[in-house]
Write a protein that binds this DNA or RNA. Structure first.
Lengths: 257, 257
DNA sequence: CTTGACCCTCACGTTACGTCATGGTTTATC
DNA sequence: GATAAACCATGACGTAACGTGAGGGTCAAG
């Protein structure tokens, strides 16, 4: 009682962790966007893990230039799903990269024009900017983060029932054990590829991964130190093996991606 | 006198062209960032070509999230050079793309974490955001758009003297004629490659193009309708020939790029 | 106890416009 | 020439997302 333990991040700790200001955290609390997990007797704000994840989400939304109240609305919807939203962020980021590539294209054309090589319409000078405006409006529409996809995801998960949900979570644990046992068959063998298919289906219980995500995960398993160490603990060759198996699976299932 | 001709874009025309608001143009006039080229007897603002280019620059700076007064300062420096700045914008855009790629990487890791595959430090949740902050600070430094590179560029051009400057501009006209005459030798021949080297040097009188820019220009000459038409008027095979010749030149000169 | 770091609330200021009011100017049509 | 719609101007208040500073309480180490 007298030494009540205070857990969680203080404002300075969280601000440093996430690269935002303390004032930002105050403001987000004030507008109800990110409430602290608890407030101590001293009036201090304390943030737990859930709040940390929520802040990450907010930063992604902010990167997409959504307004704070808009972000709050989206996250307050009962069908808000963390993973589905991350997938949507991913798509939005790729759209943004495409637009930046367009700006680079515009620069190259302007440079060539200024060195006298070709005429250029005035409209082309702003290629990428006007599209940027259009993209911004599109982002403001709720469809991108929207009800349709997110609702489908939640309904799908809820439709499984408690027993099946538990079985799905257990299945996830079994897949890597089976993969380990099948390493002797080779990464491209029918047996291993069947396990990769189960891994793919396992992911699909949570969200619909694009081919690119699948490839990206396969690469991270081998290349990312944390992933690598996690799997190498099971077997030193497992990380590279997983990458090979997943890449082959993607080559076969998605030949054009 | 009585029917004084008014030329240039009105605010609505320029706003539509560039995808900005009329209010923005008013504001930019007010703060001295973008003055109209002339003001009619009726009080209307009219913008000529020079102002259009200036607006493009402003939009690029704005894309890099520089403040308006900061942008104004940069553009008021006597050594401000349009082309050199475009090259700098290009680099900044590529840095920005790299950062967005990092955010995608963070998403992939978060997704894998949430499906139970690996532990993830809280710090990794914000990978890309904190770097974003650092990048923003770096952008605010004047070095990126800065005095050093821009000064060097201007001094270089001024050091040529009027006669040499005229000769350089004339050389630019000759290069494409020589290229046309040498088409029979093949894109990878020593004669054609020597002309590509002259083209490269020609660009370098204006700015230092990166290998990527060289490749990008080579590709645009063939792929972009305006470029393509311009060169195809000289010879129908010239656009593709130029691309081949430039790509080969870049392969040889910059084997690792 | 002292000091420095950290915490709080309060409140004004900044930046880059968005929006509206009021009224003059231009253009096209009848 | 008259009319209506589109366009132009200035002026001014408001907004979003904080930045900054004031004043004062809390915590931890020496």
């Amino acid at each position: 009682m007298l030494t009540e333990t205070k857990t969680g991040y203080t404002v300075k700790q969280l601000a440093d962790l996430a690269g935002v200001s303390i004032r930002t955290l105050h403001y987000y609390d004030e507008i109800g966007l990110l409430k602290p997990s608890s407030v101590g007797d001293n009036g201090y704000r304390y943030y737990e893990e859930e709040a940390v994840y929520r802040l990450q989400q907010i930063l992604f939304f902010r990167e997409m230039e959504l307004g704070l109240l808009q972000i709050k609305d989206i996250m307050e919807q009962p069908e808000f799903d963390l993973m589905m939203t991350l997938v949507t962020h991913r798509q939005a980021l790729q759209d943004k990269i495409a637009r930046l590539q367009t700006l680079i294209h515009t620069i190259d054309q302007t440079l060539a024009h200024l060195t006298g090589e070709v005429d250029m319409t005035k409209k082309k000078l702003f290629e990428g900017f006007t599209e940027e405006e259009q993209e911004r409006y599109a982002q403001e529409a709720s469809e991108k983060y929207g009800a349709a996809t997110v609702q489908a995801s939640m309904q799908l998960w809820k439709s499984y029932g408690k027993d099946k949900q538990a079985a799905i979570m257990q299945e996830g644990k079994v897949i890597y054990q089976d993969m380990l046992a099948a390493m002797g068959q080779g990464a491209t063998s029918a047996g291993v590829q069947a396990i990769v298919a189960r891994w793919h289906q396992h992911l699909r219980y949570f969200y619909e991964p694009t081919p690119e995500i699948l490839r990206g995960l396969g690469h991270h398993y081998n290349d990312d130190p944390a992933f690598h160490a996690n799997f190498a603990d099971l077997h030193p060759d497992l990380p590279a093996f997983l990458e090979q198996a997943i890449m082959h699976y993607c080559d076969v299932q998605f030949p054009s991606a």
